[in-house]
């Protein structure tokens, strides 16, 4: 299957400190790819290069290419807002805006020019259904999103990301701040979303990576040590360091 995103010799520096040291990786469409590795290994940094969120850090410099559907997202003149509409992101800490549930989900579509009330209503409902939270919030769409529980807030954030109809969803440890039951619900949701979206998730939870993902990449010190089908990587890792990490000998 053709990769939807391809990183080529991607290097990233915070000032002079290298955070990514030449990463080449194909990310296939409609699959769940998990990025694992110890803290500071560069997996979150890599994830954030895929929708150019690292642009916000002033000292960052990047070399190499990231191709999204064959086009370099770091090419000069590339429309970053259009890219971020295609590639959505869900963060570690649920971060709903301090507005109503409805306005949270409608924020993206409104930003992209949809004003029609009926269309917005439809998008909001569809997105909330897509994030498996519609039944819980349908009666209080006008209430503040901050009144929801942590797990609900995170699903709302997923709904908000879905509302701009992205192609790819990046998830940066999206369940790590949640209780196990809420986390399990989000995992189920991720499996459902796979039908329609390409999902790339960073996780510290190895069981989660093993349960949910199709492919797994093991990051260490800014490099991809091993990348392959999840079952294979967990059952018979080729690299000794991968084996040590997944068996809990470091990290």
């Amino acid at each position: 299957m053709a990769p939807i995103i391809r990183a080529e010799r991607l290097e990233l520096y915070y000032g002079t400190h290298p955070a990514l040291r030449g990463i080449t990786m194909d990310l296939p469409a409609n699959q769940i790819t998990a990025l694992i590795g110890p803290s500071g290994c560069g997996k979150s940094t890599f994830l954030r290069t895929l929708d150019r969120m690292n642009d916000l850090v002033p000292t960052v410099s990047i070399r190499g290419r990231v191709l999204y559907r064959g086009e370099d997202i770091y090419a000069p003149g590339r429309d970053v807002t259009a890219l971020r509409k295609q590639i959505g992101m869900v963060f570690q800490k649920a971060n709903p805006f301090p507005m109503s549930i409805y306005d949270n989900v409608a924020y993206g579509p409104r930003t992209h020019g949809i004003r029609d009330r009926g269309r917005l209503d439809a998008i909001v409902e569809e997105s909330l259904r897509g994030a498996a939270i519609w039944d819980e919030v349908r009666d209080r769409l006008k209430k503040s999103a901050l009144g929801l529980s942590g797990g609900q807030q995170q699903r709302l954030c997923i709904a908000r990301a879905l509302a701009v109809e992205p192609d790819v969803l990046l998830m940066d440890e999206a369940t790590s701040a949640l209780d196990p039951i809420s986390a399990a619900r989000i995992e189920e949701l991720i499996l459902e979303l796979k039908q329609r979206y390409t999902i790339i998730m960073v996780t510290h939870n190895l069981q989660q990576a093993a349960r949910v993902s199709d492919r797994t990449a093991f990051f260490l010190l800014g490099e991809v040590i091993e990348y392959g089908p999840t079952g294979q990587l967990f059952s018979m890792p080729r690299d000794k360091r991968t084996e040590e990490y997944i068996t809990g000998r470091f990290g």
């Binding site: 929708d51 969120m53 916000l56 807002t81 259009a82 890219l83 971020r84 509409k85 959505g88 992101m89 963060f91 800490k93 971060n95 709903p96 805006f97 301090p98 924020y107 993206g108 930003t111 992209h112 954030c157 908000r160 990301a161 701009v164």
Partner: peptide
């Protein structure tokens, strides 16, 4: 986090 969320949705 609020601002990141907005930017990640493609807002300027």
């Amino acid at each position: 986090e609020f601002e990141e969320a907005s930017l990640a949705l493609g807002a300027t």
